Each structure stands twice: as C-alpha cells, then as structure tokens.
Computed example of a mutant assay.
Amino acid sequence: MTATTVADTETRAPRGPVPNALTSAQLPRFVELYTLAGALAVSAAVLAMTGFSIVGWLVLSAVLYLVSLGILSTVVENRRKATDRVVRGLVTIAFLLAVIPLVSTLVTVIIGGAPSLTWDFVTKTGGSVFDPSTLKVTIVQGAWQAVVGTLIITGVATLISVPIGILAAIYLVEYAQPQQWMARTVTFLVDVMTGIPSIVAGLFAFSLFTLLVGPKAFSGFSASVALSVLMIPIVVRSTEEMLKLVSSELREASFALGVTKFATIVRVVLPTAIAGIITGVMLAISRVIGETAPIFIAASFTSNFNANPFSGPMETLAVKAYADYKFPSQDIAASYQSAWGAALLLVLLVVILNLVARIIAKAFAPRGLR
C-alpha cells in the first residue's frame, strides 16, 4: 500500500466515537408524565364541548397518551423504543384498570364500616335485649359470634384441606409417573374441583350431613366440609407448582449422600418450597373465608353464640353481612351499619392472617431464602 493510499484512508476514517443507534437519541426523562398531562388536558377540552364524563375522559386520555407517546418516540428515537414505550403504557393502563375496582371497593368498605367498628361491636354477641322495666326490646349490634364462627369453620376446613392437598401434590410430583392412570385421575379430579361453583359445594355438604344425621343438620363442621371441597384443589395446584420449582440438583445431592426419598422430601424439598406452600395455603384460605352461599346452606345463620362446630347453626362474618343486609331488624339503618362493619372486620381478618402467614414462612424458610 502506498503512502498516498494510507493518507487517504486516514483522512476518510471518522474521528471520535461512533454514534450508537440505540442510545444516540433519547426523549426527556419525564416525557411520559408530560405526555399524560397533555393528553388529559386535550381530552378534557374536547369533551367539554361535546359533553363531559369521567369514563370518556379517561378512555380518550389513554388513547391520546399511547398515540402521542408512540409518535414522539418513533420520530425522536426509533421504532423499537416506540414499541417498548407503547407496550409499557398498555401494561400500566391494564394494571390501573385492575387496581381501580379493588381500591374503590376497599375505600367503600372502610367508609361504610368504620363507624360501627368499635370494641363493643367486636367483642359482644348481637341480638335483642328485653328491658322489663320499660318493656322495650333493644337491638344490640355485635359480631363476636360471627368472628368465632369464621375462625372455627375456616380453621377446621384448613385442617382438612392442607394435609390432603400437600400429600396429593407430593404424590403427583415426587412419586407418580406422568402416564400413570392414578396420576392422570387425580389431576383430572383436581381440575374438575377447581371449577366447582361454591353453592354446589354447600349443597353437597348439606345433602351429605342430611343423609348421615337427619334433616336440618346445620353445623359448622358441615360448612367446613363444604369449604374444604373448594380449598383442596387450590392447595394441590399451588403446592405442586412450588415443588416443581425446587431444583432437581438438590434432590440428586441428597440421594448421593445416601438419604432416603422420604427424608429428602421432608428435609430438603419441603423446607425449600415452604414459603410458596404457605402462600398457596393462604390463597386458599382467602378464597373461602369470604364465601357466603355454602356456609349459609350448610351452617345457616344465628345471632346466638355457638362455639361447637358439631351442633347447631353457626355464623360467619360473610354470612352476617349478608343476613344483616338481606334480613334487617326493625332498626334497618343499624342492621345496614352492622353489615358494613362485618365486611370491614372480614377484610381486616384476612390482612392479619396474611401477615401471620408471611412471618411463619420467613421463619421456617432456609437461611439462604430469608
């Protein structure tokens, strides 16, 4: 190569860093917020001339936001980043659509139930009190019988469902072959039970105990059996997925040390998956603790305190909320207020149970997973 050719090559070579197509053009940091504010303002101005509505304003703002953000990103950046921004916007909108009803329901329950959520309401049994001096009947609003009934019925259902669900999941993951008829049968039955309506579970439990005990065999245990029908498939499915996530290398290392299969499951597999298993159990409890139809059919409802799950009707917080709203006493406003208080108390109970479950899962999890 001659000296002239080398010089021409050096002259034509670009000096400095070569620009990167992925980072050379960037929109401002808070462009999403600016675009959203502009979309809200433009949609409000448009709807102000045609008839303003909150739903229409939000929908039009979302459409304008996605279109504007996509155009800006395409012009300034590139199609790849524009697609990424639009998809992230769609995901954010979908998340907000899922959260808005939840937040709205929670705020409504808090506003409606907070005035009646007093210490007397929680610790006293509701019912009517007759004053012989004035010959008046006073309606006392209390939820203690419903709190006790909720804990007993849900606790018995958990004692029935959790062992059956966990053992069935262990069988499906650790022992059964995929093509075994027993494994396929259990999987099919779990899938069928997952789609059973709750009222069918209540009718099943009521019919079963009517045949065994007699007519009008209302009891908390009957309601627990109905709830266990709904809980078992959730526990099986969640536990099965958690056990599958445990690395096979852990099992092989345990087998290499001469540990039996049963000891490997108990000492290696279950402790590794304990956090997910407890989360699945809590999901099942949260699924059934607010059920009304099966408990209303199997255990009926009562304003009397009953802590014996094997005899007599029992009441839960969900059934109390329904009964006070559907069958109010002479003081209709007080009954409605009691229904809102029972609903709020049920929400608080679910929150407390979830917190306790997280603490237990963290305490029993292996050290590396804490």
Rank of each mutant, 00 (worst) to 15 (best):
T11W: 08
A13L: 13
P14R: 11
L22D: 13
S24I: 14
Q26K: 10
E32P: 05
L33D: 09
T35P: 00
A39D: 03
V42C: 08
A44D: 09
T50S: 15
T50Q: 13
V59A: 15
S61E: 04
A62C: 13
V63P: 07
L69F: 04
G70I: 00
S73E: 06
V75C: 06
V76P: 00
N78L: 06
R80M: 10
T83D: 12
D84I: 13
V91G: 08
T92W: 03
I93E: 04
A94F: 14
F95T: 14
A98L: 13
I100V: 15
I100R: 07
L102Y: 08
V103M: 12
S104H: 11
S104E: 12
T108A: 15
V109G: 00
I110A: 11
I111Y: 09
P115G: 07
D120V: 00
F121M: 07
V122N: 01
K124D: 10
G126F: 01
G127M: 03
S128E: 12
P132E: 09
G142M: 03
A143Q: 02
Q145M: 10
T150P: 04
L151E: 04
I153Q: 00
V162C: 02
L167H: 08
I170G: 02
Y171Q: 06
V173E: 12
Q177R: 15
A183W: 01
R184Q: 14
L189C: 11
V190T: 12
V190F: 02
M193A: 13
S207T: 12
L211P: 01
V213F: 04
S224P: 00
V225K: 00
A226N: 02
V229F: 07
L230H: 02
L230E: 00
M231Q: 05
P233S: 06
I234M: 05
L243K: 04
K244M: 10
S247P: 08
S248F: 10
E249S: 15
E249G: 14
L250Y: 15
R251L: 10
A256N: 12
K261G: 14
F262Q: 13
T264V: 10
V268S: 06
V268Y: 07
I285S: 00
S286A: 15
A298L: 01
S300V: 00
T302E: 04
A307N: 14
P309D: 05
P309V: 05
F310E: 05
L317R: 03
K320M: 13
A323E: 09
D324W: 06
D324F: 08
Q330M: 11
Q330D: 09
D331Q: 10
I332R: 12
I332G: 10
S335D: 07
W340V: 01
N354G: 08
I360V: 15
A361C: 09
A361L: 07
A363D: 05
R367D: 11
L369G: 07
L369A: 15
L369M: 13
